[in-house]
Simulated scan of single mutants.
Amino acid sequence: MNPDEPANQPEPVNPEQIMSSDQATALRDLLVYLRGVNYQHVAITPLSHSRIYKRDAQAWAKTVRDIVGWGRPFHADVAGEPLFGLMEAGDVLQPVEMGWRSKVRVASLNGRLFLHSAYPTLEASSVFFGPDTYRFVRAVQQYAETRQPTVRRAVDIGTGSGVGAIALAGLFPDAEVFGVDINPHALALARVNAAANGCERVQMLHSDLLRDVAGEFDLIIANPPYLVDAAQRSYRHGGGALGAELSLSMVDAALTRLAPGGALVLYTGVAMVDGADPFLADVQARLQNRSGFSWHYEEIDPDIFGEELDLPPYDIADRIAAVVLNLKREA
């Protein structure tokens, strides 16, 4: 399929159907409140999170970080006001026996706070935030600092919590910035995160890749899902035999939508098989007969999500590595 052709899909759900304006305002104020009390929490992998839980599986929250960082059950008096009231107004309180649990978590990155889905992220519409997010933003920042590009229009494909688009807005304050996603739950949280972090001008829009947004871009960034997920959760399932299908689709989209002098910064994970990199081979095949582009490819972490190697389809892989592809169209 041509990445620019409109997809034959059902009418997308509007994020306003997921979250009312009053809920969005309450959640924005919740993030502002947490920033005011110097809240910080680093989001870790689900496996590491589960290990923390197992240290005391029956523990109730004692701190705000326990409530919206670790996602432990809590009593209302531990949350206190205004936090409990803001969570109630934002409709993120889930009743449990003898107390409550938060439907969202809050992570910190570069002095900003971001709403994302509660642990465990089992629903297809879950909005993920974890170590990949930190590596992705670092790769975008490194590109901006070393290349110092001129950026008038930029887009974060598969924006999720909005973190990439919000990072772009901070790096390029004069640019028109878009965050696009097919998940309305992600867009609803991304809009709250943008508002709470002073980035209201970032446009968070529904789009399947770049099919539903027009024009060329000086900078395209993406952190696509790259695993094969049996439940095909949108934040995790990359498609194809080893999870690289969506990453390759984003490369294809960038090849047709980069402005002269524009660049793609793609962070993804790759299953290495018998010492070879199949994603790199596919990228090389796409670019070998295409003039007008230069590119750089780097493996930045040799071993991530090692637990996947116990299960098919990754039981044929040596390892899963984190990589960054920088693709530039000549001016």
Rank of each mutant, 00 (worst) to 15 (best):
M1F: 00
E5L: 08
P12K: 13
E16K: 15
Q17C: 14
D22T: 06
Q23Y: 05
V37T: 11
V42E: 15
A43T: 01
L47C: 01
H49V: 00
R51L: 11
I52H: 14
I52T: 14
Y53W: 07
Q58T: 12
A61E: 10
T63A: 10
R72T: 08
H75F: 03
D77I: 01
V78W: 02
A79Y: 09
G85K: 05
G85Y: 00
L86I: 02
L86Y: 02
M87C: 06
E88Q: 12
A89N: 04
G90Q: 11
G90N: 14
M98F: 04
W100M: 09
V106I: 11
G111V: 06
S126L: 03
F129L: 04
F129V: 03
R135E: 14
A139Y: 09
A139T: 11
A139N: 12
V140Y: 05
Q141D: 13
Q142P: 01
Y143N: 10
A144M: 05
T146K: 06
R152C: 01
R152I: 08
A154W: 04
A154S: 12
I157A: 02
G160M: 08
G162I: 01
G164R: 01
L168C: 07
L171T: 10
F172Q: 12
D174V: 08
E176I: 03
N183K: 03
N183A: 02
L189E: 14
N193H: 06
A194E: 05
G198E: 10
R201V: 13
R201N: 11
R201W: 10
L205A: 03
R211H: 04
D212Y: 06
D218K: 06
L219D: 11
L219N: 09
N223R: 10
P224C: 09
P225N: 06
P225D: 13
D229M: 09
D229H: 04
D229A: 10
A231P: 04
S234R: 14
R236E: 15
H237M: 11
G238S: 10
A244W: 13
L246G: 05
S247L: 08
L248R: 04
L248M: 13
A254Y: 09
L255P: 07
L255E: 12
T256A: 15
P260Q: 05
G262M: 09
G262N: 09
G262F: 09
V265T: 09
L266H: 03
V273C: 03
G275H: 02
D282H: 01
D282L: 06
Q284C: 00
S291T: 15
G292A: 05
W295Q: 01
H296W: 14
H296P: 01
E298D: 13
E299I: 03
P302W: 06
D303R: 14
F305M: 08
G306S: 15
L309N: 05
A317V: 00
I320K: 01
A321W: 01
L327M: 10
L327E: 09
R329L: 07
